[in-house]
Amino acid sequence: MEIRPRTPDDLDACVKALAEVQASDRYPVDWPADPGRWLTPDGLAGAWIAVEAGAVLGHVALTRDAEVTRLFVAPGARGRGLAGQLLDTVRAAVRTPLKLEVSSEGEAAIAFYERSGWRRVGSSRATWLNAAGEPALLHHYESPPVQSSGPRSP
């Protein structure tokens, strides 16, 4: 398995993996009219994928305002630590604090972020609707502090 920057040639495989995630977890809640464009939001600073044997197993993107977005791992690749590796890749590329939003319906994602040291800093209502047809409740998170690689004090 390899984590590397996403290229335009990877988009079809990313859409295929996203379709598996959407069928399993309803992420995104509504299938986008142009899923390749959805994976490439305005303000994109970079995107990375986890690949193995030509298949995309996971994806993460970062916006210019240091927001992690479009993070997912294909159902058949879960339990291997890929989400954490993808987040670590973003954190290594950008040594500033990161932020992200997650819907309150994403209980597994919330548990993962909180186990990983992300801190909830607020909540708000989205402009899009959740599975119940109501404005989704979004929780806002900040990344844990970046660890220094310098010498430690005794």
Rank of each mutant, 00 (worst) to 15 (best):
L62T: 00
A17F: 02
G79Y: 15
N130A: 09
P8W: 03
D12K: 08
P97V: 07
A55S: 14
T40I: 08
S124I: 03
G133D: 03
Q22I: 10
W128R: 13
S24R: 13
K16D: 06
P144F: 01
K16H: 13
C14W: 00
V94H: 08
V121A: 12
T96W: 07
V68K: 00
A45Q: 02
E105V: 07
M1R: 06
D65C: 14
A55L: 07
G76N: 10
V15F: 04
C14M: 12
K99M: 13
P135I: 02
R95C: 14
D34V: 08
A126W: 01
V51Q: 14
K99A: 13
G58F: 08
R95F: 11
D65A: 11
G117L: 02
S104I: 14
G117I: 10
A131M: 05
D30L: 07
A77H: 14
H139G: 10
G133E: 06
K99P: 12
P145K: 15
L137N: 14
W48K: 04
W118H: 15
R37E: 03
F72N: 01
G133H: 11
T127N: 06
S103K: 00
A66I: 12
L11E: 13
E101H: 15
K16I: 12
D9N: 08
D9M: 05
A93E: 11
R152I: 10
I3G: 01
S123N: 03
R95I: 14
P145Q: 15
G46W: 07
G54H: 12
V51M: 10
L138A: 03
G79M: 08
P97Q: 13
R70I: 03
A74W: 00
A66N: 10
L82P: 05
V21D: 01
E20T: 15
G150H: 03
S104Y: 10
W48V: 06
L57P: 02
A66C: 10
V56K: 00
P32N: 06
D30Q: 08
V121Y: 11
W128F: 07
A23H: 08
P75I: 15
E2H: 14
D10R: 04
L71Y: 07
H140E: 04
L71R: 09
